[in-house]
Amino acid sequence: MTAYIVRRVIAAIILLIVVTMITFAIFFLVPRLAGETSTQLAAQYVGRDPSPDALAAVQKNLGFDQPLYQQWWEFAHGIVAGRTFRYGPDASVCHVPCFGYSFKSHLPVWPEITSRLPVTISLAAGAAVIWVITGVAIGVLSALKRGSVFDRFSMGLALAGVSLPIFFTALLSLALFSYKWPVFPNLQYVPITQNPVLWAKNLVLPWITLAFLYSALYARLTRAGMLETMSEDYIRTARAKGLPERQVVIRHGLRSALTPIITIFGLDLGLLLGGAVLTETAFSLPGVGQYAVEAITDNDLPKIMAVTTLAAFFIVVANLVVDVLYVAVDPRVRYR
């Protein structure tokens, strides 16, 4: 078990290294391959009509004059061991994990991200609780009452949930419940430490909007899984034992049907922790997703690198947790 986890952690670290290399290549190498010189790259980060001296200084400060592998190495080294930047006589120490300074605002990237993480975590975790409970419950009931009015209605709703884009449902819910009937007026993120009630109240709409999409997915998955497991031979055995139907459904049917859902849940949650871009943007939540949008529109490379690495980190960790959990859930799975 421990050996298995250690092996998986090493594999995860290697994967993360590869991800940063690829991201680095996309944003630093591709422009050069397209013919941009390091001076032109630097020009993006200097004001209008820069003097050649200023350009040269920026080029040097941002490290564009170094070979690419060295730039990557310093980036990676910074994450693990910190990094010292020298601007002429000044030197600034960037602590571990150092993702560098924003090219645009010259603020360190990591503290900015950590200040935004609670927003994203609040959004993702709250929505996850809602969608797991509603999605699984609706899926189970639909499967048990297959073909009923409830089944048809909820599957129709689920189809809508899967098909309607977040930016549509988000704006719709804002228009209805924040403006037309101001049940949730003045939506603004309030930290949970400051006012838990307001925190929850102002997150209700984003939670429901995000959970609507995922509930729909999970309801459909759970329904399909339940329909399959409830026709298994071992369900017949459970009934033949004289178990009450509720126990048959929950202990025998749902237990099997939930296994694949755990996998998907881990990945979905990991993905969202890396930033729920659409939801955060639609509800003006200052989370990691919004930060990612800023980073890309500004072409702010350190921010892009940091956001990508963080998202990859969450997904890799979620994957790892799911794989370890899976062994606990399904005794047929062995550590390899």
């Binding site: 031979d233 071992y234 055995t237 033949a240 034992k241 139907e245 099997s256």
Partner: peptide, 24 residues
Amino acid sequence: RQLRGRKMAMIFQDPLTAMHPFYS
């Protein structure tokens, strides 16, 4: 249901699929 498993019991053709894989 109360009689099932207590007064009358049943065994099935394929014992691998007839037992739940997740429980000992």
